[in-house]
Amino acid sequence: MDAIVKTSKLNNDEIFGLMKQFITEVIGEEFVEEMDITPQSSFTKDLEMDSIEIVSFSEKIKAHFGEQIDFTGWLSAMDLDQLINLNLEMIINYIQECQSSK
């Protein structure tokens, strides 16, 4: 089943679900329970993730999507302000773009 899920294109809800799962794995369930995570949630302000946690999150995205997307490359093009304002929706859109260009 896993292989099929990985090669098929995910819709927005599925990507959002996956992102939430990764965030929970990185910061822990007890903190996620207190938060209302939405596509508009920003990583630094709303989710209070620090940069080493965003590194772990990026690693999970890379491990899941592999060569399909260059997540670190995409992040590295951002300046500090953009990184601070980064939210889930932007990542969902980026992953969608990569999926549709393949």
Partner: peptide, 13 residues
């Protein structure tokens, strides 16, 4: 600090 000081912008260049 930690390696994230390099990870996002410096290391990729």
């Amino acid at each position: 600090s930690n390696l994230s000081v390099y990870y996002f912008n410096i290391a990729p260049v």
